[in-house]
Nucleic acid binder design. Structure first.
Lengths: 156, 156
DNA sequence: TCAAATCAGGACCGCAATCGTCCTGTTTCG
DNA sequence: CGAAACAGGACGATTGCGGTCCTGATTTGA
């Protein structure tokens, strides 16, 4: 229950790595090497984070991604939102598709939103800095279910 | 993101319906008729709720299920836990399977747990009574994606 | 001006977990 | 003893997600 998506995990890993040298411009492949995650996935994650406004991208030969905001300014809510869409407990709440046919007369809806707010608040209270604080030198490679086969390039 | 499972939705629907007559003994098929949900699914939900200790079951000819606890005593956390397992944000936290190979040296882990607690607290604060309060007479049939075909028996 | 590097965006496929159903016991009452 | 109802688990379909790749746009440097 409640498992946040793999993408969100990757986002935290990538951002944590970037937080170590804020402002530095790193390419997607470089990032993949540093984190040990597969390149395409890292690239995708970086793109999502860019679209979410969490990092800045620079095209061209000497391009790359950079963390422009301070780690204390980046909340977990933002990370999750950028990678998985808005934080919402129930399909009922967003009402995006045809999820809830009788949405208008569903009285539970309002109550769920209250819970949603509380959850969102909890996630807002945690920043990237909080998640990064203790892992300065530790190897960052959690959250990979069973893909830990071919040993990571280990910074090659 | 965060979408809680369909089962949890069903659980709330069923429990809300039961909360209207606490102590009354209703069978699974009866419950299905009242809620408009398919019988097998309702039966499954009832079983899970029973196992979770949220309702009591009585076998035999005149058997059925009954809500023994007061609606104010039933928290959302309990409902979710009964139907979907423990509330945990990350695969990292539970550490049940081989999800996290480097769990022991993953420094992010502790921080996620903090978030987990906050989320759990938010869900603990909402009871079944809160979700039931306003829906005394409204038809309860949200959360059904596209299965709203054959109009519900409407209490037959 | 041209070529290389790098990001942007989307399409696509495969897997996995979930959802929903059903079947076979077990218990209780008439 | 038979019917009613719950208990528990097995099983198949489906949806969403995770992961990869391809094509285009943009910038830099020779």
């Amino acid at each position: 229950m409640f498992k946040l998506s793999r993408m969100a995990d990757y986002g935290v890993v990538v951002l944590s790595r970037m937080a170590r040298q804020p402002g530095e411009l790193v390419t997607a492949v470089e990032m993949a090497q540093r984190t040990g995650l597969p390149q395409p996935t890292v690239a995708k994650t970086l793109k999502l984070l860019t679209r979410g406004g969490l990092i800045a991208s620079h095209r061209g030969v000497q391009g790359g991604y950079s963390l422009e905001r301070a780690p204390e300014q980046v909340t977990v809510t933002e990370i999750i939102t950028a990678l998985d869409g808005p934080v919402a407990l129930t399909a009922c709440v967003e009402g995006s598709d045809d999820n809830c046919a009788v949405e208008s007369l569903c009285p539970i809806r309002g109550h769920w939103e209250r819970v949603n707010e509380a959850v969102k608040g909890a996630l807002d209270a945690v920043t990237l800095a909080d998640l990064t604080s203790a892992q300065e030198d530790a190897a960052i490679n959690f959250g990979r279910p069973r893909a830990a086969k071919a040993a990571a390039p280990a910074d090659a």
